[in-house]
């Protein structure tokens, strides 16, 4: 049993399918984990919106 993150992950403990990547929600969603097999939001405890990733300074005012 790994000592670090996984031990604190309730999904790992419960042996249910999930992904440790962050799902980037967009028209074409992506996951930070390149081995991610399923972009279903239900499999991702960590989710972020593409719009929230855009650095403030490059957001256009138009």
């Amino acid at each position: 049993m790994p000592t670090t993150p996984e031990r604190r992950c309730p999904e790992c403990v419960a042996a249910v399918a999930h992904c440790h990547g962050t799902l980037i929600q967009a028209a074409a969603p992506e996951c930070t984990d390149t081995t991610c097999a399923d972009l279903d939001i239900a499999l991702h405890p960590l989710v972020i919106n593409l719009a929230d990733l855009t650095p403030v300074r490059s957001r256009s005012v138009a």
Partner: peptide
């Protein structure tokens, strides 16, 4: 940052 260390 490791997965287990990311909080919301």
């Amino acid at each position: 940052v490791a997965y287990g260390d990311i909080v919301k």
